[in-house]
Design a protein around this nucleic acid. Structure first.
Length: 421
DNA sequence: TGTCCACAGGAAATACGGGGGT
DNA sequence: ACCCCCGTATTTCCTGTGGACA
C-alpha cells in the first residue's frame, strides 16, 4: 500500500523532472538574486552593447571628477523600465570604485521616490538616507528636516552624488524641495553636490519655478525605450541562465520582445512575461510555445487588473461596480456619467458607504480610465448637454470576476440580480 | 446664427486625522 | 493636555463648451 503511494509520487516527480523547463528560477526574478549575481548579470547585459551610448555619455559627464572639477547636475529622461536606474547605479558603482583607487572622496546615495510623495516625505526620506532622522509620518516642520540634512552633510568634504529617482513624483511644493537641493544645500555644505534627476516626464522642469530652474545648470541624457533587438539580448541572457536548453520553440524570444517593445519597451515586464511563460510551460506542455506566451500574457493582464481592483480604495471599487452594473443594465446603449452616478448611489447604499459628490465621482471615473479598467469619452449631445460616456471593454469573464471581487470586498450581500451566468 | 443644455473639469475652500513639540 | 503643522480627501463654486435646435 504505502510503497504504492511512494512509487506513484516518485514517478510523478520523475515525470515532472523529465519535462523540466526551468533549471534556475532565480534568474527569472531579480528579487531573488543576490547582489553579486545582479551585478554580474548587469555586466553581461552591458557587454552586449545594450545602453552603450548612454554609458559613454555618463562617462564623459563625470570625467571632470578626476581632474578635480565639479561636474554639472544631470537629468535623465526615459520611460519606466528603460533601465535608467539600473544603468546609473551600475555606472556609479564603477565610478566609486575608480575613485577609491585614486583616493578621491566619493559617495552616492539613491533617493527613491517611486511612489508619489508630497515634498515632506521626500525631505524625510532624504534625511533618513543620510542617517539624520528617523521616519516621521507628519508633524515635524520642513525647516527642521532641512537643518538635519545640512548638519548630516556638514562634516563631509568630497563628491556627493544624489540620485533623485522619479523626481517628478514630488507633488505639491516641489518648488520647496528642489529649491533646497539646487540652491540652498550647495551653499550651506562643503561637499561637491551633484544631482542626478531621474524622471520619465520630459517636460518636467517646466513646472519648476524659473528662478530655481535658471540656477540648475545641467546636462540631459535621454534613454529611449528598448527596441525589440535590445530586449532580445536581455531576454536571451535570462534564457541561457534560467531555462533548460531546447525547451523553447522557435521565435518565442522574438515574440516576447516584439510584444514588449510594441507595448512599452519595459525590460522588467518582458522578463516577467518570460517567467510566466516558463511557469505555465512547466505545469503543462513542457515546452514554451508561441501559444503559451499568449496565454501567459493574458493571465498577467488579468492578474494585474484583479490585483489593482482588490487593493484599490473602497470608493474606487464602488465606482467600478457601479460602472459595470450601469453598462449591464443599459444593454448596448451608451452609459452617461449621470446614469452611472445614480447606479453608484445604489451600490453605496447596499455597501453602506457614504456616497461622494458627483464631482468626486467623476474624478474616480477618470482614475479608472487611467488604469484602463474602463474607457470614457466626452460626448456632446448638442441641446441635450455634454456627458461622459462609459464603456467597459474587458473580457466578460474578467468583468464578472472583478464584480465578484468588489462585491466581496465591500460586503454587498445581494449581488444585484444582474449576475446571471 | 444664436441659444442653451448638462455636464466637464479647474481652483479654492473645507473637513479631518495623525503626529511632533512643549 | 494642548497647540501647531502637515497631508489627504471631498466639497463647493465656478467657468467652459460642442453641437442640436429654433
Amino acid at each position: 500500500m504505502e510503497s504504492n503511494v511512494r512509487m506513484r509520487i516518485l514517478n510523478q516527480i520523475r515525470d515532472v523532472a523529465g519535462r523540466a523547463v526551468i533549471c534556475d528560477r532565480r534568474f527569472l526574478d531579480d528579487e531573488q538574486l543576490i547582489r553579486s549575481e545582479q551585478l554580474e548579470l548587469l555586466d553581461t547585459v552591458f557587454n552586449a552593447n545594450v545602453r552603450d551610448a548612454e554609458i559613454q555619455e555618463l562617462s564623459s559627464h563625470f570625467v571632470g571628477l578626476f581632474r578635480g572639477g565639479h561636474p554639472a547636475h544631470l537629468a535623465i529622461w526615459g520611460k519606466t523600465g528603460t533601465g535608467k536606474t539600473l544603468t546609473i547605479h551600475y555606472f556609479l558603482n564603477l565610478l566609486s570604485e575608480m575613485c577609491r583607487e585614486q583616493g578621491i572622496t566619493f559617495r552616492h546615495e539613491h533617493l527613491d521616490l517611486s511612489t508619489p510623495q508630497p515634498c515632506f516625505r521626500a525631505f524625510n526620506d532624504l534625511a533618513c538616507l543620510l542617517g539624520a532622522s528617523r521616519r516621521y509620518r507628519q508633524g515635524i516642520s520642513l525647516e527642521e528636516l532641512m537643518l538635519r540634512i545640512e548638519s548630516a552633510l556638514a562634516a563631509y568634504e568630497g563628491y556627493f552624488v544624489l540620485i533623485v529617482d522619479e523626481c517628478d513624483h514630488v507633488r505639491r511644493d516641489a518648488e520647496t524641495f528642489f529649491a533646497f537641493l539646487i540652491r540652498r544645500l550647495p551653499q550651506s555644505v562643503r561637499a561637491k553636490l551633484i544631482l542626478v534627476l531621474v524622471s520619465n516626464k520630459l517636460d518636467w522642469p517646466d513646472h519648476l519655478d524659473p528662478r530655481v530652474k535658471s540656477f540648475l545648470k545641467m546636462n540631459e541624457l535621454l534613454f529611449t525605450p528598448y527596441n525589440a533587438l535590445d530586449l532580445q539580448h536581455i531576454l536571451q541572457i535570462r534564457v541561457n541562465r534560467a531555462l533548460e536548453p531546447g525547451v523553447m520553440d522557435e521565435g518565442v524570444v522574438e515574440k516576447i520582445s516584439a510584444l514588449a517593445s510594441r507595448e512599452h519597451g519595459d525590460a522588467r515586464k518582458a522578463v516577467n512575461l518570460l517567467a510566466k511563460s516558463a511557469y505555465l510551460a512547466e505545469k503543462g506542455a513542457g515546452r514554451i510555445t508561441l501559444a503559451v506566451v499568449d496565454q501567459a500574457k493574458e493571465e498577467l493582464d488579468r492578474d494585474r487588473f484583479l490585483l489593482m481592483i482588490r487593493t484599490a480604495p473602497a470608493q474606487l471599487q464602488a465606482v467600478m461596480a457601479a460602472a459595470i452594473d450601469a453598462v449591464h443594465k443599459a444593454q448596448h446603449g451608451p452609459v452617461g456619467s449621470a446614469e452611472a452616478y445614480s447606479e453608484y448611489k445604489l451600490v453605496c447604499e447596499r455597501a453602506s458607504l457614504r456616497p461622494l459628490s458627483p464631482r468626486a465621482f467623476a474624478d474616480l471615473l477618470a482614475e479608472l480610465d487611467l488604469y484602463s479598467l474602463l474607457r470614457t469619452r466626452v460626448m456632446s449631445r448638442g441641446r441635450y448637454g455634454r456627458t461622459r460616456e462609459i464603456f467597459v471593454d474587458l473580457p466578460d469573464e474578467l468583468v464578472a470576476r472583478i464584480r465578484d471581487t468588489v462585491a466581496a470586498n465591500l460586503g454587498i450581500s445581494k449581488p444585484t440580480g444582474t449576475t446571471t451566468q
